[in-house]
Design a protein around this nucleic acid. Structure first.
Lengths: 134, 134
DNA sequence: TCAGGTACTCACTTGCAGGTAAGTACGTCT
DNA sequence: AGACGTACTTACCTGCAAGTGAGTACCTGA
């Protein structure tokens, strides 16, 4: 399932960073976890409209292997697992924030829309324009 | 050939930026152009060991459509085309540099190697930007 | 009693990014 | 004469990322 940590070789630093962030939902996951501090599996799934359970787990496992997220399992009767960012995840998110600023500016330039949030989902939460949109 | 500009919709700024940078060689191209100011097609091809002509052109066309690179054609007898970064390309490269710093730090942490440069190619040059498929 | 919520796993399929290799038109170098 | 350099275009093929949908095991509330 390719859940082992990526390890290069790389052309350069950007290459190494992109390798870790490559994946349709990874930067979104990073953003969600950074914003909420800690999230359960189902909370993440609901927070990322359109993600499939398979992809979400796969990405979380890869990011865990890469040392970006921490996975805490609570052995309770309804299973409970909490995901949070490690310090490496937090610093990666900070680096991505710079890129996010550029991207937001680009969206403004070309007049791109935001993907519409499905009705019933968190109403007015993660709006990229704010301070630290990933 | 998908040379039209990407246009969303996006989840957030990072999404928009990643869309533009997604492509195995795009960040490398950005880096090459930023470093040399202006480069001809064949110079770029030689500067990016392993890239195929098809992918190089495809990426250049997409980046042109996205307003990142400028393409200047000289109607001379041996054809001559010069590529350079627009101001948007330059600012994107600056944003990627932050990510590059993080990636370099990560490479140090996990002890990843750099891809070996083919014998005969530029010896000890680029430290800057590169990508893998996003 | 059975739908729904917890957090997953597994098997199958599809789309597309990227690789390979050839063709084009024109000119110079050997 | 023909190899090589310029900057591409075109067609075909492959591998992998991602999507789909079902199954698992347990518990709660209507």
């Amino acid at each position: 399932m390719a859940t082992s940590a990526r390890q290069g070789p790389y052309f350069c630093g950007v290459d190494a960073a992109m390798d870790v962030v490559a994946g349709k939902w990874k930067s979104l996951i990073l953003w969600e976890l950074d914003n909420h501090g800690t999230r359960r599996f189902a909370e993440l799934r609901r927070g990322l409209p359109g993600v499939s359970e398979k992809m979400l787990i796969q990405h979380l496992r890869e990011m865990e292997a890469d040392g970006l997220v921490h996975r805490e399992v609570y052995r309770e009767v309804p299973p409970k697992v909490e995901y949070s960012l490690t310090e490496h995840g937090v610093s990666l998110n900070a680096a991505l924030a710079v890129l996010g600023t550029w991207g937001t500016e680009r969206m403004r330039r070309i007049g791109a829309e935001k993907v519409s949030v499905v009705a019933g989902d968190r109403p007015a939460d993660h709006q990229g324009g704010s301070t630290r949109s990933v």
